[in-house]
C-alpha cells in the first residue's frame, strides 16, 4: 500500500488520510524541520495527483463551472473594493511625493504603472487568499472530518478529481479576471482622487498614464496571477483534505490555508517579479 502512496507515476492515489506519516527521526529537535519537509513532500505528491486528475478523463466540467461561478462571485466585490481603495491611496501618496520632487506630470503614469504592475495583482492575490483560501479550506476540512471525503473514495471516485482539481483550476482561471477588475477599479478611483483636486477627464488620465506602456507592462503581471491562483487553490485543498481532529481541525485548516496561501503568494511574487523583469524587460 505504501507503494500506492509514493508511486504517483502510475496515476495512483492513496487515500488522503493523514495517518500514514511514517518518517520519525530519533532526535526531537529536528521535529519541526522534518514536519516541514514532510509537508512539502506531501504537497508535491498531492500536486502531482491533481495534475494527473486534471489532464486525464473523466473531466468534472460541471463542478469546474460551479466553482468558477462561486469563486468568482464571492471574491469580486472584495477585490473591487480593495482595488479601489489602493487606487485612491496610491493616487494620494503619488501626488504628494511627485509634487515634492517636481514631477507632477508623471502622476498618471506612476499610478497606472504601479496599479497594473504590482498593486492590482498582489492585492487580488491576497484578498482571494483570504476569502477563497478560508472558504475552500473550511469546506473541504468539514467534508474530511465528517467522512464525506472517505465516502467519495469508498464510492470509487477520486476526491482529487472531483473536489480538488476543479477548485484549483477555477482559482487559476479566475485570478487574472479578478485582477482585471482590481486594476480597473484601482485606476478609476485613482483618477477620481486626482480629478477631485485638479480637473482631468478619465480619457486624458488613461492616455497620459499608458503613454510609453506596452503589452509587456500589462500581460505578464496579469498572467502571473494564475500562479497565485494555483498556490491558493492547491494549498487550500491540501490543507482541507488532510484535516484531522473534528470541528477544531476545521478551524485550524481554514486558518492555515489562509496563512500559508497568503505567505506563499507573497513569496512567489518576489520570484515572479524578478522573472518577469528578466524575460519581459
Amino acid at each position: 500500500m505504501i507503494d500506492r502512496n509514493f508511486s504517483p507515476v502510475a496515476g495512483t492515489e492513496a487515500p488522503l488520510s493523514g495517518t500514514r506519516r511514517s518518517l520519525t527521526f530519533p532526535s526531537l529537535s529536528f521535529g519541526p524541520i522534518n514536519k516541514f519537509f514532510e509537508w512539502f513532500g506531501d504537497l508535491g505528491i498531492f500536486f502531482w495527483r491533481v495534475v494527473h486528475a486534471a489532464i486525464t478523463p473523466p473531466f468534472e466540467f460541471r463542478e469546474l463551472f460551479r466553482q468558477l461561478d462561486e469563486i468568482g462571485s464571492m471574491s469580486l466585490p472584495l477585490v473591487a473594493l480593495a482595488g479601489a481603495a489602493t487606487g485612491v491611496v496610491l493616487s494620494l501618496e503619488a501626488r504628494y511625493s511627485l509634487t515634492r520632487f517636481g514631477a507632477k506630470s508623471l502622476l498618471p503614469a506612476a499610478i497606472v504603472f504601479s496599479v497594473i504592475h504590482e498593486t492590482g495583482p498582489i492585492i487580488t492575490g491576497l484578498v482571494v487568499s483570504g476569502r477563497v483560501g478560508a472558504g475552500i479550506g473550511a469546506e473541504l476540512a468539514s467534508m474530511k472530518v465528517t467522512e464525506q471525503i472517505d465516502a467519495i473514495e469508498a464510492s470509487a471516485v477520486s476526491p482529487c478529481r472531483l473536489l480538488a482539481a476543479p477548485r484549483i483550476l477555477a482559482c487559476i482561471l479566475v485570478l487574472p479576471l479578478l485582477t482585471l477588475a482590481a486594476d480597473f477599479c484601482g485606476l478609476f478611483m485613482g483618477w477620481v482622487a486626482q480629478a477631485l483636486v485638479e480637473p482631468l477627464s478619465f480619457h486624458q488620465f488613461i492616455s497620459a498614464g499608458f503613454k510609453g506602456a506596452d503589452f509587456n507592462d500589462f500581460l505578464p503581471p496579469t498572467f502571473k496571477t494564475m500562479m497565485f491562483g494555483l498556490i491558493i487553490g492547491l494549498i487550500a485543498c491540501f490543507q482541507g483534505m488532510r484535516t484531522q481532529g473534528g470541528a477544531a481541525g476545521v478551524g485550524r485548516a481554514a486558518t492555515s490555508s489562509v496563512v500559508l496561501s497568503s505567505l506563499f503568494v507573497i513569496l512567489a511574487d518576489v520570484v515572479l517579479v524578478k522573472l518577469i523583469l528578466i524575460f519581459f524587460p
Binding site: R4, G11, T12, E13, S142, D150, A154, A156, S158
Partner: peptide
C-alpha cells in the same frame, strides 16, 4: 495491498459501505 488506485476502485465499485455516521454529502 498490491493494487493501484484503478484496480482498487474496481473492487470498491463492488463494495457497499455504510459509514457509522452515514457521511452523506451535505
Amino acid at each position: 495491498a498490491g493494487l493501484n488506485l484503478d484496480q482498487l476502485c474496481e473492487i470498491r465499485m463492488k463494495m457497499g459501505f455504510l459509514f457509522q455516521h452515514a457521511a452523506l454529502y451535505d
